[in-house]
Every structure is written in C-alpha cells, then in structure tokens.
C-alpha cells in the first residue's frame, strides 16, 4: 500500500472559491522521512493547498491522504497526526517556556508525565533548559522559532508542516533552524516546508513549484536544475514563476 510508504498522497486535489480556482488538480506524493519544499509565488495557491492538507479546509474535489488519513473524511485524525508551525503564529507570548509545552502537549492529548519528560528532553537538546521559567515574550525571535518548532513536534507527529518558518530571519539563525529540520527528518519525521529563500530549497530532498494553482514542476533540486538548464533553484523558480519578467 502506498499509504505506508508515503506521508502525503494527493490526486487531482482542487479548491475553488466561487469561480476562482485556487488549487487546480494537483497530484503529488511525499515519501515518509522526506524533506519536501513547497515553493511558489505569492498567490499561487500554496497556503490553500497546505490548509487542505492540514485538514483545515475541505477540498472542492479530488483526494488527499495525509499520515494515512483521508483529508476530506477524516480531517480530525489528520490534525492529530501532524505538527504545524508558521512564522505568524507560534507560541503564547504571555506564557512561560514550559507552559507553552504543557498547553500544546495537553491539546494533543499527551499524558502529564509524557509532557514533562519530552519537554525536559527537548529543552536540554536545545541547550535551553535553564530558560524554562522565562516568559516567551522576552526571548529573542530566533529562539522563539526554535521553541515553536519543538512544540510543533512535541507529540511526535509523523509529519510536520512548516509555513515560511524562516521568514524575516537573518542568515545565521536560518541555518541554525535548518539544523533542527535535518535532525527532525533524521528521526523519521516527514517535513513539508514552504520558503521564499531559494538557498533553502536546495536543502530539500525534493521541491515542487506552484504557479497559478498548478504544480509547474516537481523533482529533486539537482534534477530540476538539469531539466531547466539552470545552475540554481532560484533560476528555475524565475523561469517557472516569473511570468511577467
């Protein structure tokens, strides 16, 4: 069964808002343990597609399976099996570091002792144990992002969705963040990530480039470059999503 080897399967997934087709018949797979980059211009339909995959938006037509569950019929189970983090929403600023872990662990139905031990383990790995009593609002943004990512994978989801996790982050902090992504992928978590930094696209196992609701290309960075005769994914992106230029 494909469901056992793939974290995401979509077939002709479509979302329409009135007569506007935001996502237009997209079919693709993401393998388990893969780092999958989901690229596209603003307004190409990435967020809509991601919302469907996270069980937050019902598809107009087509099929999607995430973590083995049908996104149309079993959206609640999808939500329980995934982690989600975005640049915009991450942590509760007026809660302490450990309280954020406690809250999200509780929401995902983890037992108290499980939450406590996972929290300690993760904070120690981050070298952040001494800050467990600190209010999140007083932390530097780079740290908040690392914590938000840890909270998103606290319940050991099989797949984590990262929506522009490094937007507005400086080059040094971006690289530190990607080390966390690699570590998560090594531990077997599938990573589905959107980014506007094209150097980050090169760090993915495979990337897709969306344009006007469709997937214009999908392959490993190396193969994409070869196919389009480019030296970087950035050039491929400009070729496919450029349009006016």
């Amino acid at each position: 069964m494909k469901e056992t080897t793939h974290a995401i399967i979509t077939e002709n997934l479509t979302k329409k808002f009135g007569d506007f087709t935001a996502v237009d018949n997209i079919s693709f797979d993401v393998k388990r343990g893969e780092i999958f980059g989901f690229l596209g211009a603003n307004g190409a339909g990435k967020t809509t597609a991601m919302k469907m995959l996270c069980g937050l938006l019902k598809p107009t037509s087509g099929m999607g399976m995430v973590a083995g569950y049908d996104i149309s019929k079993n959206s609640e189970k999808v939500k329980k099996s995934i982690g989600y983090m975005s640049q915009r929403f991450s942590l509760y600023q007026d809660l302490k570091v450990w309280e954020n872990f406690r809250l999200f662990g509780g929401i995902y139905g983890l037992k108290d002792n499980e939450i406590a031990s996972r929290t300690d383990e993760m904070l120690k790995n981050l070298g952040f144990y001494d800050e467990r009593e600190t209010l999140v609002q007083s932390l530097p943004a780079g740290w908040k992002q690392k914590l938000a990512f840890s909270v998103a994978i606290l319940h050991k989801p099989s797949i984590v969705f990262l929506d522009e996790p490094t937007g507005g982050v400086d080059p040094a902090a971006r690289r530190q963040f990607w080390e966390l992504i690699y570590a998560a992928a090594e531990s077997g978590i599938t990573v589905f990530v959107t980014t506007h930094y094209m150097d980050e696209a090169e760090y993915c196992d495979r990337v897709s480039i969306m344009s006007e609701g469709k997937i214009a290309a999908l392959d490993s960075p190396e193969n994409l470059k070869q196919k389009f005769g480019c030296t970087t994914v950035e050039e491929v992106f400009h070729k496919l999503a450029g349009g006016v230029l």
Binding site: A41, E164, L245
Partner: peptide
C-alpha cells in the same frame, strides 16, 4: 523595515 519578508523571489526582484 523588512519590506520583502514573506515575498516571493519574483516579486522581490520587481
């Protein structure tokens, strides 16, 4: 102040 955060590469160039 960070006018192109969250903006795709094509729009950034424009």
């Amino acid at each position: 102040d960070e006018p192109t955060t969250g903006v795709d590469p094509v729009s950034r160039r424009e």
